[in-house]
Design a protein around this nucleic acid. Structure first.
Lengths: 147, 147
DNA sequence: CCTTGCCCCTATAGTCGCTATAGCCATTAC
DNA sequence: GTAATGGCTATAGCGACTATAGGGGCAAGG
């Protein structure tokens, strides 16, 4: 394997990704269309590897692919201020914050529910009671946020 | 609208759901197959409504449909202990706890990153730097948990 | 009588970020 | 010769819906 010419399998190993994911990113236009060998196999270089690693880092931090696409674009326009980059990061942070809040209130509700269950018969099970409960019905049952 | 015979649209309103979701739950066998009018329209009663509300409450608490299916089943087997119910709830609580932890560490990392950005040029942007960073490469890049 | 509007029906595709499968081709080792 | 490996494309699957296309029935208004 030369340092600047590897197959999709080699690229996958180097980036700790798997092969289908790379083809998927190509399809989604996050990775450029690579050169091909005569036999039709994709060939990559260190630039592809760096781009792929960038994408994976972004994913590890929870950015969606659209954000990452934008970040990739912005990151290559050296010479401008990073306002837009910061905006994307900040928006992401806000999403994370609200998701944490949502999960924490679920956590509270769930543990209270579980604690108050007497572990007796199903008929008296507190968990079922809560789920059966219609007290809160008719209120704001909008979208159920992703948890 | 009689109290014990309503259309899918009426049921949807009563449960603050939408019509397709009801058909979807039927397809997924969470709701029983309803009776039909001569014209082929679904007809529901209060039992269907209660079951649907149960499902929605479960979803609001973050249970997945498989869990809810199980909970529905267990809730109708009156006379047994609620061990299995508690197990489902506890497993769910654990999932929520670990998701909170994951999100909190992302939160920390993200806000540190944003804070340390000097809001200058893209070339020096701390956000891009972190995403470009290969220090952590080669370590445990397993699955990316859902956030 | 005809149109408009509303509600219902089925079947199918789209979301997101992959993962997995089927079925094929090319290279390499034995 | 043949088996293993790794590449290719195209397509389906996950979860929990949502949305769309294309159709039918029924009542009120013109």
């Amino acid at each position: 394997m030369e340092i600047n010419d590897f197959s999709i399998g080699q690229l996958a190993k180097l980036a700790h990704t798997n092969v289908q994911t790379i083809r998927f990113y190509e399809h989604k236009q996050l990775l450029d269309i690579p050169l091909r060998t005569e036999a039709g196999q994709r060939r990559y270089n260190v630039d592809s590897l760096n781009k792929l690693k960038f994408i994976r880092h972004g994913r590890e931090m929870g950015f969606c692919l659209d954000d990452i696409k934008e970040l990739l674009l912005l990151s290559s326009t050296r010479g401008q201020t990073c306002e837009q980059i910061d905006a994307i990061a900040n928006a992401h942070l806000l999403r994370i914050n609200s998701r944490i809040k949502r999960l924490q209130s679920l956590q509270t509700e769930l543990s209270r529910m579980i604690k108050s269950c007497q572990h007796g018969e199903v008929a008296n099970c507190r968990v079922i009671e809560v789920l059966d409960d219609h007290k809160h019905c008719g209120k704001d049952h909008g979208e159920i946020e992703k948890i």
